[in-house]
């Protein structure tokens, strides 16, 4: 796997969400991702920055265009230094929320993108990485 381009963006307030989504769209468009796949990726990204803002007071997102076996994709890494997640398995369940919300963000995001990885250390923070390939596979 090779990294073709890389950039990062700090997310500290709600107003950062829309510009961030535009940035993701730029990346997805650059590699010629279809509209449906773009929409899935941007929606997933939107959920993850919302979590970052809501539970960890923000964080940093790294945006990358990557290529594997000649297929390009967008990889996004969401890193925060918030409280972390105690039970990831539970947090990944549909309907689980400590924020009195729908509890759809994490499991929904996992369904929307090709690759999903979450690491969290209570007291240290959370890192979520998602990858979506150009053709959605």
């Amino acid at each position: 796997m090779i990294v073709i381009s890389k950039d990062s963006m700090g997310i500290i307030r709600e107003q950062d969400v829309v510009p961030f989504r535009s940035r993701v769209k730029e990346y997805a468009t650059k590699i010629g991702m279809s509209l449906v796949n773009q929409t899935k990726l941007i929606t997933a990204a939107s959920e993850l920055v919302r979590n970052m803002l809501k539970y960890a007071n923000g964080g940093i997102v790294t945006l990358e265009i990557i290529s594997k076996n000649g297929i390009s994709g967008v990889r996004l890494t969401f890193e925060d230094k918030g409280p972390g997640i105690k039970d990831i398995q539970l947090a990944m369940k549909d309907g689980f929320s400590t924020g009195r919300s729908l509890g759809l963000g994490l499991p929904g995001t996992k369904r929307l993108v090709n690759e999903f990885d979450i690491k969290s250390v209570p007291g240290e923070g959370t890192t979520v990485t998602i990858t979506h390939w150009k053709n959605g596979r």
């Binding site: 449906v36 929409t39 959920e47 759809l104 929904g108 369904r111 929307l112």
Partner: peptide, 14 residues
């Protein structure tokens, strides 16, 4: 609602 949005909402589970 754009078709891509509708498809995405279903997968998101909303």
């Amino acid at each position: 609602m754009q078709p891509a949005v509708a498809i995405t909402l279903v997968e998101l589970g909303l």
